[in-house]
Write a protein that binds this DNA or RNA. Structure first.
Length: 918
RNA sequence: GGGCGGUUAGCUCAGCUGGUUAGAGCGCCUGCCUUACAAGCAGGAGGUCCACGGUUCGAGUCCGUGACCGCCCACCA
């Protein structure tokens, strides 16, 4: 009764129990280690969870990302490092506001009716009720994060940090407010950053419009546009100063059709003589290029649309029309007046709002920006320069490394970052505008009066900050910045960032900019040991993370992106309940090769659920034997056990695999690591090792006990090897191994196997390979001869003296695993015997009266012969080549010579067999 | 308009700095309920590594060109 495991592996019966246990026991909580403590001396591993949106629920992409992080984290933790995985959620400005607005709409009210304060209150309530779904789901999936350190980006302390950062950047001259053309979503009613605009190919039209000259209304200058409605705001027509066609028109005026406004013809190099007529209409308030032309020429800026892209009072007769209605009307009116010179098909890229897919409208408005290329007023590097150098100087390593180039290119072309949003939910910008002097006071706390003029008529800026502004700060604000905390000292820089490329620029790049800036002097809190920092070390210690691993995307089985509208979303929780978390995790890990998106296929999970089942049953097998002899797995293996080949072999394999897994996980090759542990457990341990030792287990009790002791060591080690990948099933079995009294509260706190080279035994592995080869060959022969599965057959073997010795020593193994009655060693070649199998190492024949199918055997042999002869020709071609011999390394030449000899031998044997087949 | 990735077994994917016979899982075929596991065991079939050219003693691997698929970035009317 000691090692009780139910007969059937049922993940749903064990997983919720352990998930709850891990959280309740606070197993993954990391207390801040006091200076000098033992924990403070361990290597530190810190990982910040990319904070999911409060509004969100877990999708396959999360589960994949979390699985990778959890494997890495559990691995490091089991290697004895001080391992902190920090969770939290993001307030997700636009997304959350939308959700609540929708809820209000269903109640027949609206944000506007509620008013700002009540609305924000409502969002907080909403968050209380519906927020944090993802975190609950993560708990169920066993993510080993430190739940005691959970944060929310709108928490008081983090909000204070946001204000602190804003004020400092403002004081350094790196935040400014100004009226510029920004990307504007007419549906969301807010500015968005360049990154939040997604470009799409669009088969549109290019309209050519005639603008009559003022002095000579019969003459026209023709301009082209894809957005004719913007002409209402035109304030000039530009031509290239070198364009001879227009030289004499520069300085003259045209009458803007429909608006009947006089606007000048100006010369500007922006106008491309090659494009269209070479003349371009200039709308400074509705186009970024035109805005700049306007600046150069001091043109008026006429805004003709409101925040929802309806034509406003500046649009004359078109006032009140939606932008596309206006377009149709304007085209019709132009045509009527004979001013529409032509319409051409024209494919161009239109920008859509990343969130709601509405076509964005460039809009002139007053916004707040972060100057990324400007040096701070008090000296030092610009944000972009520090962020660039952090990577070029290798303070941050990015995997796969092609993202390094992508990142650097982006950083090189980066524009100032528009950080203000015309929303209500978010961090409100800490700036107060004065109604009297119209100046702005930026302050950490609400100022009593206007800074410049002392007026009391001040009002806080209504805009809030881009959500990414606050998330960019998390690596240091979650650790206590701007205070010189012990947490910052111990856990910063974080070790690793695991994320998807979709937020490379949104988040990763901004964290690097902000991290480097605010963890570098003068913004760096003075931490113990900082005095020793100088030169490149300063930047090295300022980066938000030392490594970045960019993972692939999870798609559906047909490589389609999973999306709700397509209806191909796989719910991780549902799939987990069906197959078990361990199986799904293992599937994800085994498919996680870098750079390749995952085509997530349910049939693949089936295979890994079978693997979990295999582990379960192996455990039951071990426990069954153990309980029969009343043994314990944890008693340690008797010395003599390592004299046995199969033990040296499995121990060698165990150490080799552990070592390879360490390497693979270090390189983020989750697929390699998963495949190796799978192959080891199923292939080596179950298929061969357990089968080999079964007779000992069924034999005398002392023998069984000795065998079990060794087996137990390997098995328990294998559980620890598997644990980062399959935490639930290994936890369950591990506790059973220790009969409910484990040395640690969890296998997750036990040590990951530490491979030792001295146990890696090449000779044992080679000998086992020979034995396996022989067994497989005999099995093949028996199947080929259609021997009844249970009938034992004698075999004859012709081989070298040392292999004969090996076989004699392991006679029992061969007899049992190949269903052999007896082995007879013969000194003469068996190649002439019909139905013999020949390898370079041995020739074997199964003695059985049934006739071989001569025709089939002949065909097989001829096929084999042809293949081998091809290989031999190839090999000889090389070995006979002087150039090869002189240039190739000796190792390769020698290998090839051996191969040649083996091939010759084999070919000879097969020819003999064929002759005898006759 | 720039830049990046992919094309290997029926399917999904490995294949490290070129080097001995290109691998895995699933699927498929054959035979087995062998007292841990039929979610299993044993055996097997299946590949002109997208095409062409080049470098090399040697190319799935490096270089060039092309085809097809996918992605990212971009203020040309």
């Amino acid at each position: 009764m000691a090692h009780e495991l139910p007969k059937t592996y049922d993940p749903s019966a064990i997983e919720p129990r352990w998930a709850e246990y891990w959280v309740k026991e606070k197993l993954f909580h990391v207390a801040t280690p006091p200076p000098g403590s033992a924990a403070a001396k361990s290597p530190v591993f810190t990982l910040l969870l990319p904070p999911p949106n409060v509004t969100g629920s877990l999708h396959m992409g999360h589960m994949f990302e979390h699985t990778e992080m959890d494997i890495v984290i559990r691995w490091h933790r089991m290697r004895g490092e001080l391992t902190l995985w920090l969770p939290g959620t993001d307030h997700a400005g636009i997304a959350t506001q939308l959700m609540v607005e929708r809820q209000l709409a269903s109640e027949g009210t609206s944000r506007q009716k509620l008013g700002r304060e009540a609305f924000i209150q409502r969002v907080w309530e909403w968050r209380e009720h519906y927020g944090g779904t993802i975190l609950r789901q993560m708990k169920r999936l066993g993510a080993s994060v430190d739940w005691d350190r959970e944060y929310f980006t709108m928490d008081d302390n983090l909000s204070q940090c946001v204000r602190e950062v804003f004020v400092r950047l403002y004081e350094e001259g790196l935040i400014y407010r100004g009226t510029y053309i920004v990307q504007w979503c007419p549906r969301c009613g807010t500015a968005i950053s360049d990154l939040e605009v997604k470009h799409e190919e669009y088969a549109g039209k290019l309209y050519q419009i005639r603008y009559p000259l003022k002095d000579d209304p019969e003459q026209f200058i023709t301009v082209a546009t894809t957005r004719p409605e913007t002409m209402l705001g035109d304030t000039a027509v530009a031509v290239n100063p070198k364009d001879a066609r227009y030289t004499k028109l520069v300085g003259k005026k045209v009458t803007l059709p429909l608006m009947e406004r006089e606007i000048p013809i100006i010369a500007d190099y922006f106008a491309d003589p090659q494009f269209g007529s070479g003349a371009v209409k200039v709308t400074p308030a509705h186009d970024p290029n035109d805005f700049e032309i306007g600046q150069r020429h001091n043109l008026p800026q006429i805004t003709v649309m409101d925040e929802h892209a309806r034509i406003n009072e500046n649009g004359g007769a078109y006032k009140g029309l939606d932008r596309y209605e206006a377009r149709e009307r304007i085209l019709k009116d132009l045509e009527q007046r004979g001013l529409l010179a032509g319409t051409k098909d024209h494919t161009y890229a239109i920008g859509k709002c990343d969130r709601c897919k509405t076509i964005v409208e460039p809009r002139l408005s007053k916004q707040w920006f972060v100057a990324v290329n400007k040096e701070p007023a008090n000296g030092g590097m610009s944000l972009a320069e520090a962020a660039t150098r952090a990577v070029t100087e290798d303070h941050i390593r990015i995997t796969p490394d092609n993202y390094r180039t992508i990142y650097l290119q982006w950083m090189e072309n980066i524009h100032d970052w528009c950080i203000s949003r015309q929303l209500w939910w978010g961090h409100r910008i800490p700036a107060w505008h004065c109604a009297d002097c119209h100046k702005t006071t930026v302050s950490r706390e609400t100022p009593p009066k206007c800074g410049p003029c002392g007026s009391g008529k001040i009002q806080q800026e209504t805009d809030v900050l881009d959500t990414w502004f606050s998330s960019a700060l998390l690596p240091f604000t979650t650790l206590g910045w701007p205070q010189p905390t012990r947490d910052l000292q111990v856990f910063y820089p974080t070790t690793l960032l695991i994320t998807g490329f979709d937020i490379l620029f949104f988040w990763m790049a901004r964290m690097i900019m902000m991290g480097c800036h605010f963890m570098m002097p003068p913004n760096r809190p003075h931490l113990p040991g900082d005095d020793r920092l100088s030169g490149p070390a300063i930047l090295r210690e300022s980066v938000p993370f030392r490594e970045v691993y960019i993972h692939a995307l999870v798609r559906d089985a047909d490589r389609q992106k999973m999306s709700k509208t397509k209806g191909n979303v796989i719910d991780p929780i549902a799939i987990t309940e069906k197959y078990g978390t361990d199986a799904v995790r293992f599937t994800l890990a085994s498919m996680a090769s870098p750079g390749t998106d995952i085509a997530f296929n349910e049939s693949r999970i089936d295979g890994y659920r079978a693997f979990a089942n295999k582990i379960w049953n192996a455990a039951r097998f071990v426990f069954m034997n153990l309980d029969r002899v009343g043994g314990s797995l944890t008693s340690g293996a008797p010395e003599g056990e390592l004299e046995r080949l199969e033990n040296r072999w499995i121990y060698s394999r165990f150490n080799r695999v552990a070592s390879e897994i360490n390497k693979s996980l270090g390189d983020y090759r989750f697929d390699e690591a998963a495949n190796m542990v799978y192959q080891f457990f199923w292939g080596d341990f179950c298929d061969w090792y357990l089968e080999i030792i079964k007779p000992r287990l069924l034999g005398p009790e002392a023998e069984a006990r000795a065998a079990l002791a060794f087996l137990g060591d390997v098995f328990e080690g294998a559980l620890r090897l598997l644990s980062p990948f399959m935490p639930f099933i290994t936890e369950e079995i591990w506790h059973a191994v220790y009969e409910g009294k484990p040395p640690k509260k969890s296998i997750a706190l036990a040590r990951f196997p530490e491979p030792d080279q001295k146990w890696i035994d090449g000779a044992a592995e080679e000998q086992m390979a020979t034995l396996q080869e022989l067994i497989v060959n005999i099995r093949y022969l028996r199947a080929d001869m259609k021997v009844e599965p249970k009938v034992k057959t004698p075999v004859r073997i012709h081989t070298s003296a040392d292999i004969q010795k090996l076989l004699e020593e392991n006679r029992g193994m061969v007899e049992r695993l190949a269903t052999v009655e007896s082995i007879e060693f013969v000194s003469t070649s068996l190649a002439h015997v019909a139905g013999a199998r020949a390898t370079a190492k041995f020739e074997v024949v199964v003695v059985f009266e049934r006739k071989v199918d001569a025709a089939a055997e002949g065909e097989r042999l001829r096929k084999e012969l042809k293949k081998l002869e091809g290989q031999l020709a190839n090999t000889q071609g090389q070995v006979g080549n002087q150039q090869f011999l002189s240039k190739a390394p000796a190792r390769v030449v020698e290998g090839l010579r051996m191969q040649e000899a083996e091939l010759k031998l084999l070919i000879e044997k097969i020819k003999k067999s064929l002759d005898n087949l006759g």
